[in-house]
Amino acid sequence: MSQINHQPVDILVSTHQPEQVTLRGYVIGFGGSIVMTITAYLFARYGMLNKPVMVALLAFLALAQFTLQLVYFLHLGREFSPRLKLLVTVFMMIIVFILVGGSIWIMNNLDGRMMGTKVMIKYMNSQDGL
C-alpha cells in the first residue's frame, strides 16, 4: 500500500512544478535573434532584390524571430496537456491576422474606388470648393 502511494505523489509534484529556465535556451534565443535582426537589416539596406521578394523575406525573418523568442524567451510549448497557453496564443494570432489583413484589404479596396488626390483637387476647384 505504502509502496503504491509513494511514487505517484513525487511524480505529481514534479509535473506541477513551474518550468525551470536554462542558460542554454536564453543563449540560443539571443544569438538567433541577433543573427536574424542583422540579416534583415543588411538585406533591407544593401539587398538588391525586387520589392515583393524583399517584403516576403523580411516578413519571414520577423516571423521566424517571433517564433524563436516565443519558444526560448517566453517558453511557449512546454506546458502539459491541455495546452491552454498555446490555445490562447493561436487564437490571438488568428484574430490579429483577421484584424490586420482584413483592415488592409478593406481600406485598400476603398482607396481604389476613391478619386485620386490630384483629380479631387481639380474637381473641388471646378465645383467652387465642393
Binding site: 535573434s33 539596406r45 520589392k51 517584403v55 523580411l58 525573418l61 520577423a62
Partner: peptide, 15 residues
C-alpha cells in the same frame, strides 16, 4: 521585432 520590421525596414524599402 514587428515595429523594427514594419516601421523601419519596410519604410526604408518604401513598401
Amino acid at each position: 521585432i514587428f515595429i523594427f520590421t514594419i516601421v523601419y525596414l519596410f519604410g526604408a524599402i518604401r513598401v
